[in-house]
Amino acid sequence: MAYLKLDHVDKVFTRGTATTEVLKDINLTIEKGEYVSIIGHSGCGKSTMLNIVAGLTQATTGGVLLEEREVNSPGPDRAVVFQNHSLLPWLTVYENVRLGVDKVFAKSKTRAERDAWTMHNLNLVQMAHAKDKRPNEISGGMKQRVGIARALAMEPKVLLLDEPFGALDALTRAHLQDSVMALHQKLGNTILMITHDVDEAVLLSDRIVMMTNGPSAHIGEVLEVALPRPRKRLELATNPTYVKCRQRVLEFLYERHRFVEAA
């Protein structure tokens, strides 16, 4: 039984008389608790695909089913961690997380419970100490942690990560990847992540969805990453399965579907 299902999703952008087919016939099913990455060259429509799942963009034809029900408008059951964190700069870290909590649990939790739940989620990402700071007073990695806390606090059925580590330096990125892995282990979320980093995809995912180049991008190949969890970054470097998976993704991206416009 599919938990999240993209069913024959097409996306066509129309500007005046010019039409561009961005996505063509995307079919993907994701099981509950699965960590799925979407990888592809820039411009292949992977962000569009995530936005369609989030409900921020409408599919031209086809649709998205979550627990057998169609979803076509944004909602907290599909919380997004945005690439550029998108924290509201006039709210403190705490208030940014609380905003979502107040909406989602307006009826089901008391004020005190909502406060406790907000703090609990800030603790999960180790950001409770900065709860009264404003976004411009904390580092990029910290902002992204708060962004993750905000999404987690909405108790989403699916967590959508839109290149969540793209804007971070390599060390912070590694640190945050470990945090996300630990959270996934602990909470068992269903996660759909966009990335363009091969190592990141192999390290974090249960399955890697490889996209062909646009226009009319479609799913070229899906790779199972059969590595046991918890995964340790250092041990994996020499693990034959890891190396093989990495090799497969690299071959797909750089041999079979080279990004011609890049050079």
Binding site: G75, P76, R78, F82, L88, G100
Partner: peptide, 20 residues
């Protein structure tokens, strides 16, 4: 981005006006 955040959190128009 702020509009997207508001959409995901599902702020109603009044809340969107006051909070965003």
């Amino acid at each position: 981005d702020y509009r997207n955040v508001a959409a995901v959190v599902q702020l109603n128009p009044l809340e969107f006006f006051a909070k965003i």
